[in-house]
Design a protein around this nucleic acid. Sequence first.
DNA 1: GTCTATACACCGATAGAC
DNA 2: GTCTATCGGTGTATAGAC
Lengths: 204, 204
Amino acid sequence: MTLKIPFRKQQFDAREEAILDAVNGLLSDKGYDLMTMEDVAAAVGVAKGSLYKHFSSKEKLAAAVLSRLLRETLAVLDAMPADWPAVRKLEEILRWSLQHRLRGGVPHLPSTSRALQRSLILNLEYVALALRVNKRFHTLVAAARRAGDIAAAVPDDVIVYTLYSRACDPTVEFLVRDGKLTHEEIVEAMVAATFDGFRSHAGA
Amino acid sequence: MTLKIPFRKQQFDAREEAILDAVNGLLSDKGYDLMTMEDVAAAVGVAKGSLYKHFSSKEKLAAAVLSRLLRETLAVLDAMPADWPAVRKLEEILRWSLQHRLRGGVPHLPSTSRALQRSLILNLEYVALALRVNKRFHTLVAAARRAGDIAAAVPDDVIVYTLYSRACDPTVEFLVRDGKLTHEEIVEAMVAATFDGFRSHAGA
DNA sequence: GTCTATACACCGATAGAC
DNA sequence: GTCTATCGGTGTATAGAC
């Protein structure tokens, strides 16, 4: 059997990727509510109506982008050396999230828009991926706690949710806007603040 | 001279307060973009058009609510015992923010809506208040650092911005929704996570 | 000053020509 | 499958009666 892929199909897939990339940028820039289908069409360079031949709704479009992000996250987790301590893995996943966002990626949490949140719950693919990511995070936190690396005062749920929240923390935007710190310094400062806190632990 | 305030004026002011309270609730619930003037009118119990006799636009309305919140914040800062260490004051202001939000208050940061952000920059009263609050925060952080209570790895800006961000951290909503922790436990866990971090500092 | 009614703009989604 | 044109719905803000 021949595996040749028709040219038209290739072109279609390429355009679909371009659409996802455009939505990625717009989503991280203006957010879901303020992003219009016309914005997307203009960014890709096609007519508004044509978008609906690829994605049947604005919600499906956003879900596709966020699902892609979750798959990337799982891939990053899989690529981590098995001998790293769990707490190190948690640190690295936060570091990756922040770096990814500074490169123009979408944050994990779509919590900025109630409308988007509600539609995502109905999206089977997204929910399945989100559950897998969430399970991986919880497993890591539990392992880190068994190893004695996690503070007793901070419950597991707080840690996992905070990891998501940090990925869309507006602090990043403000620091970038100020321009006093490099992207790398921003990432390291936020990782340090998250894992070791504001307080100095030098003295007693 | 008589200081009697006309009845009509009292009624007008009372209604204005009611409007601000309604917007406060809606803003913390659906956010700026999804909140419509009809929502506000329905919550207050007046017609949509009547709102514009009090506030000339939706943006002014939101700015009024957020300005009121900033004034409250300044009042809380003023009410703190002068002999508290600066780091203690920072901790308390975060604690107050989280408690205030759990009681139904609006988060400080309008960072969820680009549209709101842009209009606030043009609002003189709001900007002036925001600058005052920001200055107070920076002064406290500088004092805490001089006292040796702040980690060297975390710049002042990161601390101040994070204090704002924490006040509207979606982690709070998720923890409330899960229902495993009481409001008080949520506040303490987040304060602990923010100031002492995830990592256990028990061992070496 | 509060109401009803409406002007005006925008957006998501669809229809139909090519 | 991509375009142009448009429908239906919604939201801010205003006009005008009372």
